[in-house]
């Protein structure tokens, strides 16, 4: 499949700060690619380098082989949503779009069309200063769509949206992909995007951690993280586990977690010892867990990050984890 966006060896240093380091990935045509990473991992800087707003230190970021500046009428090819504050507060929504349309050589008829598309027709004559954050995000989307571009770049578009807004955004993004647009959408929350994206590009500390499909990531999430057992006879189970030197963690007075255990192993143990069980939970890591592990484990391999960050706060099983191997 041809790539809509290609990033090769992209690097950005702000003085001594290495915001983006040798980053390479591709966005396939007609697909939604989630650009994921914790805050401060270089996502915004990368997107701004793509759009020619931030100068690259080295490497390339191109659309079909051309940098943004080299595109003929760039807004006709690439639509971008950046931070939600870039409006003049006393300008009316409609005038903001007209200003962009005139400057970019886009027919003025697109103004009403895109306002309609994002559901802002009723407030077209209202000053943007009076807009809520959600309305501003929609106006940003309208601005990005004005030139009917084949590529959309959205930087944290879900920020500040309420649950309905996020739901609307998901539908909107899926619709844009269904009509053939290629979309690169950044987020620091995978959960926000897991129903929306086809592919993921995961970054941490300015470096690529993983580029794969969402399906592959979901496969990784399916691997067992361990079992949790709630039982009135929890003491007996603990004795058995201690005798066989299996690690466990108490998570409640009548509940323990056994990291790394599988149902196929634990089931027979419980049956053989005739232990009454109230609750038996197979902890499959969620996508978010996988995401957190990927980004944090990666961070730990770099100087400055504390060793054993895998067991630090924010991991799925925060708290005392006596048997955790951590990341050495």
């Amino acid at each position: 499949m041809p790539s809509a966006i290609e990033v090769h060896g992209l690097t950005k240093h702000f003085g001594s700060v290495h915001a983006v380091e040798d980053l390479s990935f591709e966005v396939d045509t007609g697909r939604v690619t989630g650009f994921l990473g914790p805050n401060g991992s270089g996502k915004t800087t990368t997107l701004r380098m793509l759009l020619g707003l931030v100068a690259v230190t080295s490497g390339t970021a191109t659309f079909g082989g051309r940098t943004y500046e080299k595109l003929h009428k760039p807004t006709h090819h690439v639509g971008a949503v950046l931070e939600a504050t870039s409006f003049h507060p006393s300008r009316r929504a409609e005038d903001h779009l007209k200003m962009v349309a005139i400057g970019a050589g886009i027919p003025l008829s697109r103004v009403a069309e895109t306002l309609e598309l994002v559901g802002l027709s009723d407030v077209a004559r209202r000053r943007v200063g009076k807009f809520s954050l959600g309305m501003r995000q929609r106006l940003q989307l309208a601005t990005a769509l004005l030139g009917d571009p084949e590529i959309l770049i959205l930087d944290e578009p879900a920020n500040g949206l309420d649950p309905q807004g996020i739901q609307w955004l998901r539908t909107f993004i899926r619709y844009q992909a269904s009509i053939g647009r290629s979309i690169l959408v950044s987020s620091h929350l995978l959960s926000e995007m897991e129903e929306t994206v086809d592919d993921v590009v995961i970054v941490s500390e300015g470096r690529l951690v993983l580029q794969t499909t969402l399906a592959d990531l979901a496969g990784r999430a399916g691997t067992s993280n361990g079992m949790r057992v709630r039982s009135p006879e929890i003491g007996r189970l603990i004795e058995i586990l201690t005798a066989t030197q299996v690690a466990y963690r108490p998570t409640a007075p009548d509940t323990i977690a056994i990291d790394g255990a599988t149902p196929e192993w634990l089931g027979p143990v419980l049956a053989q010892n005739q232990i009454v069980v109230y609750e038996l939970i197979h902890d499959r890591g969620s996508l978010e867990d996988v995401f957190l592990k990927l980004t944090q484990g990666f961070a730990a391999t770099f100087p400055g990050a504390t060793a054993g960050a895998g067991a630090g706060p924010g991991t799925p099983h925060a708290g005392p984890a006596p048997m955790s191997g951590g990341v050495s």
């Binding site: 707003l53 971008a80 409006f87 400057g103």
Partner: peptide, 11 residues
Amino acid sequence: HKTVTTTFLIT
């Protein structure tokens, strides 16, 4: 007002 971002995207 940071509208320069939009302006530079157009030009």
